[in-house]
Amino acid sequence: MLTRQQRLLLLAPLALVLVPFLIWPALFGFLASFTNYAPAQAHLQLVGLANYKTVIGDQQFRAAFRNILVFGVVAISAELAIGFGIAYLLREPFRGRELLRVVILLPWLVSPLASGVMWHFLFSSSTGMHNFLFASLRLPTLPSPLGTSGLALPATIATDVWRKSPLVSFLLLPGLLALPPELWEQATLEGASLVSRIRHIALPGLTPLILTVALLLVGDTLGLFDSIVIMTGGGPGSETITPALYSYQQAFQINNWPVGATSAWFIVAAVLLVGLCYLSLARQEAS
């Protein structure tokens, strides 16, 4: 065991990085949201909840949270399901499994921003994949779904699922492999079906890990920005605007700093809310 002083010394470097570059800005943003603070603001004054009123009253902001709710529910469930499926397929050893584990991780290595650029072109009418297929089948070609009302959000969700399902499978596979082999042997002897193996062996053993992955995915989704800004810029209309895009536009493009910082605090609040659910679920799981 270390002494108290030694433990604090070991924690100090992390604190030196996190306090000025994460915790203080987050708190400062919260405090500033009750004022008219902005970098070039000469007369600082308290404005109460005025910023919050502005943000909540904004159609765009409400659309952003509605979009991200749909996006999150659909994309995260799909990513968990597909990621789990791939991990399950990779569970038993076979020749070439090591290679496959690396190859299947490739989509996640593409940065969200580059993935946005890539799908912009892959969805476009002249360079796209689907239109090449349609043309080969002598079907009429379609405009990019990213610019089509009603299709833009599903299309962006699909790109997110493409990029992140491989990561989920990469994170879940070690958990599957760590389950005691006796459980699988038992299931084989009993002739258990695939569904029952998944329900009674894989899922119970993986629950803590799945919760952890889910929390990270939720956080990532709530900050969704890089790929959206390239693919749709929030459009058409406000069909794909996200909270992160909204905050960014307010703070750095319209130069409405207070509204930007205040709306970003809704992202913090959402992550904290989901995080508290995670903590209580993880605690139930442990006991």
Binding site: P25, A26, G29, D220, A251, A261, A264, I267
Partner: peptide
């Protein structure tokens, strides 16, 4: 997410 605190 970074967006939560990047403005301040």
């Amino acid at each position: 997410p970074v967006m939560a605190y990047v403005i301040p």
